[in-house]
């Protein structure tokens, strides 16, 4: 499938997975890939459910070699100055309290909005109506999706929601369904209905699951996938295995003598401790490759979704160099990707 087709499947990609598996990294790589193909992409991050502060880390900005911390205002991560055809990458954070203010403004309750939002009343409302902050954030997302669908000037072609970690994501996406079942009325109910309509329409919204090729993240990904489909009624797009070690051919019977002998044949002297380092490093890599392959296989068996893979970068900090590498991997993976379930 070509990249343009992949991004044309839906307007909002919801990226979720267990904590620490690379949700933000994948969001950045997807946005960068979209931009590479001339699409403009908006990455949306959100404060943790209930919290009213923006994410503290600048992880996403740093992928693009920038330093800004995301807030409610849009930040341009990749300007429209690259070689043709290049799109733009923008990012912003969504916060429930600010979304509430906007919502009240839009519904003719401007006078109260500021006070309601600053007096901590959101806590009150959130406690009385669980899922209220979620619905405010999702309502804002839906509004952005509508703008994109209508092709409004400045609206992005693709929206990537860098969603909360798996368990929270299920609750978050379930919120509008919960609200519909509760004894609420008025505009909140209407809002919930519209959000449910977006979440359950695969042409408007699909979920991308991220995991690492390790036992616990894979198990939780399978559970999350089921919960998202069953409880939130969301369509699943693909699963992305992040941080997989690139495969190296390493002889299974490698030992120090073999290495010392091989070096000697070319006139180089390899000490025995040096040879042992190489053997130990190879043993670690082989064990890791084996266990990762087993987990990827298990994931395929237990979760019938197409898979994509991103390599481990052998770094502890991800910047533009790693982003380019990951974007390349995503691009080549998409060449053979098909939306057909395994």
């Amino acid at each position: 499938m070509v990249v343009e087709e992949f991004f044309a499947q839906t307007r909002v990609f919801v990226v979720t997975g267990k904590g620490g598996v690379g949700k933000t990294t994948l969001s950045g790589a997807m946005a960068n890939l979209a931009a590479r193909h001339g699409l403009s992409c908006l990455v949306v991050q959100m404060a943790a459910p209930g919290a009213s502060r923006p994410p503290e880390t600048a992880h996403l900005s740093r992928l693009f070699g920038q330093d800004g911390v995301l807030d409610y205002e849009e930040l341009v991560l990749k300007p429209l100055d690259g070689p043709e055809p290049a799109g733009q990458v923008r990012a912003r954070a969504l916060r429930a309290d600010t979304a509430l203010v906007e919502y009240l403004h839009a519904h003719g309750m401007k006078r109260l909005s500021r006070r309601l939002a600053t007096s901590g009343a959101l806590d009150v409302v959130a406690t009385a109506v669980p899922g209220m902050p979620d619905i405010l954030v999702l309502g804002k997302l839906k509004q952005m999706e509508r703008a994109a669908a209508a092709g409004q000037p400045g609206a992005p072609d693709v929206i990537v929601l860098d969603a909360p970690a798996a368990g929270h994501a299920v609750r978050f996406l379930q919120s509008p369904h919960g609200l519909l079942g509760a004894a609420t009325g008025g505009p909140v109910r209407a809002q919930a209905e519209e959000v449910v309509a977006m979440l359950s329409d695969p042409t408007r919204c699909q979920v991308v699951l991220v995991t690492t090729p390790e036992e616990t993240p894979v198990s939780e990904t399978v559970e999350t996938a089921q919960a998202l489909e069953d409880k939130a009624g969301a369509a699943l797009c693909t699963v992305v295995v992040n941080g997989r070690m690139p495969h190296l051919d390493l002889p299974a019977d490698l030992c120090a003598e073999v290495l010392v002998g091989a070096a000697g044949r070319r006139g180089a002297r390899l000490s025995e401790p040096g040879a042992n380092e190489l053997v130990a490093a190879a043993a670690l890599r082989r064990a890791r490759q084996r266990s990762e392959a087993a987990q990827v296989e298990r994931l395929a068996a237990e979760l019938p979704l197409p898979q994509l893979e991103l390599p481990f970068c052998f770094s502890t900090e991800l910047g533009p160099a790693q982003l380019a590498l990951l974007t390349d991997a995503l691009e080549s993976g998409l060449a053979s990707w098909s939306p057909v379930r395994l």
Binding site: L250, P251, L259, A262, A263, L278, A281, R285
Partner: peptide
Amino acid sequence: PRFDAVPEDVADALREEGLGGVVANL
């Protein structure tokens, strides 16, 4: 884990002997 490096001539020799993967991994 931390691993010590091997000298460059050894790395070259191992690559020539078809053991480039072992060197790359280190």
